[in-house]
């Protein structure tokens, strides 16, 4: 009984941690971009203000839409939040870890995406159709790369739960298999950029609907729905980022506060890196985005090959 209560408490702690800290990354990215543009920029906590403001607004629905349009933001946010339970975050161990939870991890993201795409098609707007089509195309490729990365990591760590995959407290063998891990990290970073619709795949700040991917899909959402979608985006970035952190920070100090501190600074570093990339790079032409993702796939394949050569088989 006591164990069950403990599990529930850890679940809530994890959830609160994700909810509280995820929009912060967006703030850091914004600040970095402003710094590069020579501006002061919006405050670090702007994403929190945005979400709070949107939560207090009413909603406008298109007459074309159905129940799917109204449910999709909630389904997406719920799915993404639950996927966060599978990932360890610094001092917080993953509340749910079991053999093969990587599969669930990927499919939860797929579920969220499926409903967002359906919601976009529900409006009957041609712009949102364009965005949905692009999002679906790119996610097909990134899913393959994601699974190949997981397979490479599984071969390295001989485990198949996310916690075990990234070492489960035991540091990954960077010495022997460093190149493979580096490739996995690069490939995963490319996937992260694509899945969170950042530059060079998608520009979250454009104002021309024809060129947008993710932003154009949510044109018709407003008020609470939009807040949920924004929040969902932030959580997705946070969860994928924390997976990346778990590979990159291969040690644990066994001190919860210390670990969490290292984790948080790592995440901030990640956000700064994304901000820098957004400032110094232009976005790719749309027909070149698939090549970007194919290279993520090939990096993963390369990592697999190296693991097979070095893995002692």
């Amino acid at each position: 009984m006591a164990q069950k209560i403990l599990a529930i408490i850890s679940l809530w702690l994890h959830l609160t941690f994700i909810l509280v800290s995820s929009p912060f990354l967006l703030g850091v990215i914004g600040k970095t971009k402003a710094f590069f543009a020579g501006k002061w920029g919006p405050p670090l906590f702007q994403p929190y203000y945005d979400i709070a403001k949107l939560l207090r607004k009413g909603c406008v629905y298109s007459t074309t839409t159905t129940w799917i349009f109204r449910a999709a933001p909630m389904i997406a946010l719920a799915a993404v939040l639950v996927s966060g339970f599978l990932v360890p975050m610094g001092g917080f161990n993953a509340p749910a870890q079991f053999w093969g939870d990587v599969i669930l991890f990927v499919y939860l993201f797929a579920l969220a995406r499926f409903f967002i795409i359906l919601a976009a098609l529900d409006t009957g707007s041609s712009f949102e159709g364009i965005g949905a089509s692009r999002e679906a195309t790119f996610s097909c490729l990134s899913e393959v790369a994601l699974f190949l990365n997981f397979t490479a990591l599984a071969l390295i760590s001989k485990n198949l739960s996310i916690t075990g995959l990234v070492g489960g407290g035991v540091s990954l063998p960077w010495q022997i298999i460093g190149p493979a891990l580096t490739l996995v990290v690069i490939s995963f970073f490319l996937i992260l950029l694509c899945e969170n619709s950042r530059i060079p795949v998608d520009d979250p700040a454009t104002h021309l609907e024809l060129t947008m991917i993710h932003e154009v899909m949510v044109l018709d959402h407003s008020g609470v729905d939009l807040a949920y979608i924004l929040y969902g985006g932030a959580v997705k970035l946070f969860v994928l980022g924390s997976f990346l952190m778990a590979i990159l920070i291969p040690f644990k100090t066994q001190n919860i506060f210390m670990d969490t501190g290292i984790f948080c600074s790592g995440m901030t570093g990640l956000a700064v890196a994304i901000g820098v990339i957004e400032s110094v790079m232009a976005r790719l032409r749309l027909n070149r985005v698939p090549y970007f993702l194919i290279s993520a796939v090939i990096f993963a394949v390369f990592a697999l090959i190296i693991t097979l050569v070095r893995g002692g088989h």
Binding site: P290, Y291, I294, S295, V297, I298, F302, I305
Partner: peptide, 11 residues
């Protein structure tokens, strides 16, 4: 795309 895939196979 094809050449990228091909080079993956070549590796």
């Amino acid at each position: 795309g094809s050449t990228l895939f091909l080079s993956g196979f070549l590796i």
